[in-house]
Design a protein around this nucleic acid. Structure first.
Lengths: 150, 150
DNA sequence: TTTAATGCAAAAGATTTGCAACATG
DNA sequence: CATGTTGCAAATCTTTTGCATTAAA
């Protein structure tokens, strides 16, 4: 689930330019936290990001991870995905994509489909508010959990 | 957001038959908790269900509400929808439908579209696990929040 | 140097659990 | 009657906050 280096560095560059534009300070911890989410495709939760970043910055604190993750969300650089009964997970994949989510363990994977990207929504939806993104969520049971249930 | 009575009673009957089949006891609180979720279209969280059911059964406890809600989920009678940073909300609408979710306040509404119900998924998805349901999630900002932001 | 960001510790929220009393099948 | 379920209170787990210290611009 490793994203290739070029893609990661592009994402980090994008992050840095957004911060400059918004007047947000580029701290060591912010960069590493962002990089961590950007370089993995497995939608980590705050705790996982914390543990991994700690390898590089042993003094980071969990609350900084939380603060940064929500900051990234506000900047539109990361999307929180809430698979209930699970902690919030974060996704730094900004290209249009869709999710498969295991209802019993929370396992989440991206998938792509240009057909799904171009879905036409009924007019009724517009009346609820302003639309930002549309994505398809497939609920199911992942292979690991399917085995356990037997 | 009131569901019509006939539909509610049908849902409750369905719930009761599922419980009998599974050998699960039909307690007063379970029935009222299920009815509460079934009769509203606004995807309440556990706390809201608790408050409303308390009107009818003053002694219910919040933990029973939680236990029942997750039981209902395991029985497939209710679907948890996790709009992160918000508590888990529950949806008893079992007919195929889709969601509009406000990213800033969690406001959630159902919408229908037979086009969306018949979406074709790419083969890759099948490799992640067994598919149970597919639904479209539209993220946006609801009208109330859009006003606040100005 | 000015202001925002961090780390710490403590608080707040949400959800879960152990257990004795109780209700359902 | 036997067993599963409830309510209570306490525990746990996740996330947030206040504040003094530190680091970016």
């Amino acid at each position: 689930m490793k994203i290739n280096n070029k893609e990661i560095e592009e994402r980090v560059k994008h992050f840095e330019s957004v911060c400059r534009r918004e007047g947000i300070k580029l701290t060591h911890q912010r960069i590493e936290i962002f990089r961590e989410v950007a370089q993995t495709g497995d939608h980590p939760d705050a705790e996982q990001v914390f543990t991994r970043v700690k390898g590089r910055i042993p003094t980071v604190s969990l609350d900084t991870v939380y603060r940064t993750l929500w900051l990234l969300k506000d900047l539109g650089l990361v999307v929180p995905i809430g698979s209930s009964r699970e902690r919030t997970r974060f996704d730094a994949n900004l290209s249009t994509h869709h999710h498969f989510v295991c209802g019993s363990c929370g396992f989440t994977r991206d998938f792509y489909s240009s057909d799904l990207d171009n879905i036409q929504l009924p007019d009724a939806v517009t009346s609820f508010g302003q639309i930002e993104a549309t994505h398809v969520e497939v609920r199911g049971v992942c292979q690991k959990c399917a085995k356990k249930q037997k």
